[in-house]
């Protein structure tokens, strides 16, 4: 009886699925969109912080911060990062104070209680470039520049993606269908999911950001790499600590597990022996 009921229930589900499957096969068509054809996977990118032994290249992070400050911060916020966090890039307390003072952050006038702005302090977080989303949209062709704090974790293959996006602006290929050509205020970039984004190429010419003595030449490629490295840091400032802690933990567990395995073999030896 149970058998018959179960087979009936089974037939109910399988026949329903077979029906979906038949219709699916009848209309079978692999998705073929313009995005599928023109979208590109991110380029390869190697950073000092990659790999199980990776460490940040502090010099590069400072350069990346400079690129963010001088270029990206005009449009993108960095809300999860405070100025004092920058000491991790190798800046001294005095330098951090000076950097913070260079930004205007929202404040309150102590005499009148009215909102105003004041120079930043190390405990302040990076200020937003726009007062609100509406202002951000209005200034950017109806697209909100997303916060960059976690950007390298918020996209597939994040660091490589950001780097590719920054260096991937180009003229649309001749065979790109009319409907997918960049419209007013949009820019063609094959690394972006729908091929056209509202961000104008932010890094356009060598020397746009002046690096200090002893640094590599600020080519577009170099600046893109540096700001990406910086954004990897903002997304996970404790990355080095995580990897450094990992090794002794794994070492201990390996030792304990091998010891445990040998103990297991020893204890079970006489139980598994053939009589």
């Amino acid at each position: 009886m149970a058998r018959i009921i179960s087979i009936l229930v089974g037939l109910f589900f399988t026949v329903a699925l077979a029906w979906s499957l038949l219709v699916g096969l009848f209309n079978f068509e692999l998705p073929h969109t313009v995005e599928h054809e023109f979208h590109k996977a991110p380029k390869e990118l190697h950073l000092a912080s990659d790999g199980p032994f990776g460490k940040f290249d502090r010099q590069q992070l400072q350069r990346g911060f400079q690129v963010y400050k001088e270029v990206c911060s005009a449009c993108h916020s960095l809300s999860h990062v405070a100025f004092r966090d920058l000491t991790a890039l190798g800046y001294s307390d005095a330098e951090v104070k000076a950097i913070a003072a260079g930004f205007q952050v929202p404040g309150v006038d102590p005499a009148t209680g009215e909102t105003n702005t004041r120079p930043g302090m190390p405990t302040d977080y990076f200020p937003k470039p726009f007062a609100n989303d509406i202002a951000a949209r209005a200034a950017n062709n109806n697209a909100i520049p997303p916060d960059l704090s976690l950007m390298t974790k918020a996209r597939h293959e994040g660091p490589a993606y950001v780097y590719s996006l920054l260096t991937g602006f180009q003229n649309p290929p001749a065979n790109l269908p009319e409907a997918n050509r960049p419209g007013q205020g949009l820019h063609y970039n094959p690394y972006f999911a729908n091929l056209n984004l509202a961000m104008a190429p932010p890094l356009t010419s060598e020397g746009q950001v002046q690096y200090g003595e002893g640094n590599p030449k600020p080519t577009v490629d170099q600046m893109a790499k540096d700001v990406t490295a910086f954004l990897v840091w903002t997304a996970e400032p404790k990355l080095e600590k995580r990897k450094q802690t990992g090794w002794p933990v794994l070492g201990f567990l390996l030792f304990a597990t091998v010891l445990g395995f040998l103990a297991f073999r020893n204890i079970w030896a006489d139980k598994k022996k053939k009589a």
Binding site: P52, R242, K243, T245, G246, V249, L250, L253, L254, A256, T257, G260, F261
Partner: peptide, 14 residues
């Protein structure tokens, strides 16, 4: 348990 924790920590840390 040790072998499981090893894999687990491998995921957590790396």
């Amino acid at each position: 348990l040790g072998a499981f924790l090893f894999l687990y920590c491998l995921m957590v840390f790396f």
